[in-house]
Design a protein around this nucleic acid. Structure first.
Lengths: 148, 148
DNA sequence: TATTGTTATACTCTATAACTATA
DNA sequence: TATAGTTATAGAGTATAACAATA
């Protein structure tokens, strides 16, 4: 099969929002800590980048600084993120997960993944292989587009 | 390659939000009419289901009635959707695209698709084939999950 | 002067609860 | 009484513009 560029783009445009809705509704369900997708992603980034600044997180997520500031503010209020002024450069923030943030992230990740796993488990190994390959290709596409 | 259920679910959980962000930022850009993704989807649904009721649209998109009511309200205000009381059952609405809504949808669709096409055009035919197959599989997954 | 964040303001998206109008 | 929508209220996500603090 040799799908056209058009067909491929159309498929992505239809299916990605569908999947996003699925993931979002799961994140909001009572099976997991109540985290929005952006909150979840911010926590995951901070797990991998201890001590990142606000700009670091905003840059990674492609959000404006005010949006990021507000998002982090909510996580700080909930005790999931520690926010300190940097010693080197007092304009910058030093952000890190708290112990509570770390465990909340872990529970949310397990919950969200386990839900997707239920769905994915009904597929054949060959179908899963196709999905993984497609995700890797799309990850490259998104990374390239974000850098432009 | 035989990816595990875990790996597959994790990939989806990471990549879908990335792609969603890409699509959303494009929708909001000045290259297309300024439509949010839900607004775009509602217009697309009404194009295929002329005369649908509010509940029809809400059901299809998985939104609550108040959310849908407000979303449609915005589209009516912008002159993209016509909202009338049904003659048969005066509790129901009869929704339809206006001429302006129809053309706005078309322009937005072309804009969003053309942007994705630029990205997708850099891929090989084999890569596009993988993506199309994966989207078809995920569409089934989403449809099944939505019906539960 | 340039950079990092925050505040102010204003949308949209989303939900639940309470309400109105119709059947 | 049950159904279709709307209004009220609330919180998150997002942006731009204006500001404060620091370098």
């Amino acid at each position: 099969m040799q799908p056209s560029v058009d067909e491929c783009a159309n498929e992505v445009l239809e299916v990605v929002p569908l999947m996003m809705r699925l993931i979002r509704s799961q994140m909001r369900s009572h099976r997991t800590p109540d985290l929005s997708v952006p909150q979840f992603r911010a926590l995951a980034f901070l797990e991998r980048h201890e001590g990142a600044s606000l700009s670091d997180v905003a840059g990674h997520m492609g959000l404006s600084l005010p949006s990021m500031s507000k998002l982090i503010d909510g996580l700080v209020t909930r005790g999931l993120v520690a926010r300190q002024t940097s010693f080197n450069d007092r304009r910058c923030l030093t952000l890190a997960l708290t112990a509570s943030g770390r465990s909340t992230l872990e529970v949310a990740r397990q919950g969200a993944v386990s839900y997707l796993k239920e769905q994915v488990a009904t597929l054949s190994p060959a179908e899963r292989a196709i999905i993984v390959q497609a995700m890797q290709i799309l990850r490259r596409v998104a990374a390239k587009a974000a850098g432009e």
